[in-house]
């Protein structure tokens, strides 16, 4: 049925870290050729979800199917072959500090293709131009600002035009102009090359403006999903609270902890 229409299908997956349950029996799908957004409060496990999709973490139960293969059951070698079809923008950027920006972006191309250096140079310059950093090609990552480093990392994650790109907080630390450029870039990649994107972000307006489908995660589960238009109509308290950014409501702002008053009054630990 819809098998081949979804590039990722997560079904009944549970995952915990140090006895703290992050996901409890969660299921979601990423349709091929679409932009899927994942939103949720900080610390809820969005980065963890991307790592589960990329096979860097293994769930305790459930399946993570990428391109009709269960990522959790692949051998190391098969996993590396599957990852050639993925790109990931890390939340921290994770540029290689001993190389220039140019070499960082050329690196995956040099590793995975036999293209001559003259073509690699053109590809790299095109990617850098797309994120507005062509002038910074010869700088080292330590010489970039936080927002510039993130855009350079974005250029690297799209260097090979993979089938699926996972963006972890692509808009964080960007000024309104860069933000607009990145939003358009993700949209263009999707429209022109039919690339599937998963965008993790807190920026509600930007996400609703580009996503085809949105999942909101909280309390170890998907609490709401739908197209941006559907979510704007959503009446559930949790969703309204998250979309409007109200501190009070059913979505906890705090990391799980004992009672506040009790902890302040209690001297012994």
């Amino acid at each position: 049925m819809s098998q081949s229409n979804n590039i990722i299908e997560i079904s009944n997956m549970s995952f915990s870290r140090n006895d703290r349950v992050i996901y409890d029996d969660i299921s979601l799908q990423v349709p091929r050729g679409k932009i899927t957004a994942i939103m949720g409060p900080s610390g809820i496990g969005k980065t963890t979800l991307l790592r589960l999709m990329g096979g860097q973490l293994k769930p305790e139960t459930g399946a993570v199917v990428f391109d009709n293969q269960d990522i959790t059951k692949l051998s190391r070698k098969e996993l590396y072959i599957a990852r050639r079809k993925m790109g990931m923008l890390f939340q921290s950027g994770a540029l290689f500090t001993e190389m220039t920006v140019f070499d960082n972006i050329a690196f995956p191309i040099r590793e995975h293709t036999e293209l001559p250096e003259s073509i690699i140079r053109k590809i790299v310059l095109m990617k850098l131009e797309a994120v507005g950093l062509r002038g910074a090609a010869q700088l080292f990552p330590t010489e970039l600002s936080g927002g510039m480093a993130r855009r350079a990392a974005l250029a690297r994650s799209i260097a090979l035009d993979p089938e699926l790109i996972m963006f972890d907080e692509p808009f964080a630390g960007q000024d309104p102009i860069s933000m607009g450029v990145i939003v358009r870039l993700i949209r263009d990649l999707n429209d022109a090359l039919d690339i599937t994107s998963v965008v993790v972000s807190h920026d509600v307006e930007e996400v609703l403006s580009i996503a085809d489908y949105v999942y909101i995660i909280a309390n170890k589960k998907v609490i709401a999903q739908g197209t941006p238009a559907q979510l704007r109509q959503e009446k559930s308290q949790q969703v309204v609270q998250f979309m409007e950014g109200n501190p009070d409501g059913p979505v906890p702002f705090h990391f799980p902890a004992q009672d506040y008053q009790e902890e302040l009054l209690n001297n012994v630990k």
């Binding site: 990329g54 590396y80 990852r83 050639r84 993925m86 890390f90 921290s92 994770a94 995956p108 590793e111």
Partner: peptide, 11 residues
């Protein structure tokens, strides 16, 4: 600095 993780994700 997640450079090792990003290598893994670059296959």
């Amino acid at each position: 600095t997640e450079q090792l993780s990003s290598l893994e994700m670059m296959a």
